[in-house]
Amino acid sequence: MRIVLDESKCSSLGMCESVAPNVFEVGDDGALTVLNPTPPEDQRALMEEAVAACPTGALSIED
């Protein structure tokens, strides 16, 4: 599983970080960093929650 960020859509609203702070972090400069783009399979439900939580639809999961 790979987390894909579409930077053209991301506006750093931070919901992904709120769901999974170990994988996503918005920096002080307002840029989102995917700390771990390939989280382990046991985190799939959490990653799906993070994708669904994004108000701008900037995240997706690739297998």
């Binding site: 750093s12 609203l13 931070g14 919901m15 970080e17 709120s18 702070p21 972090e25 918005v26 920096g27 002080d28 400069d29 307002g30």
Partner: peptide
Amino acid sequence: LPGKIMKYRA
């Protein structure tokens, strides 16, 4: 302060 607000939420 977009880098801080979710830390406060947590």
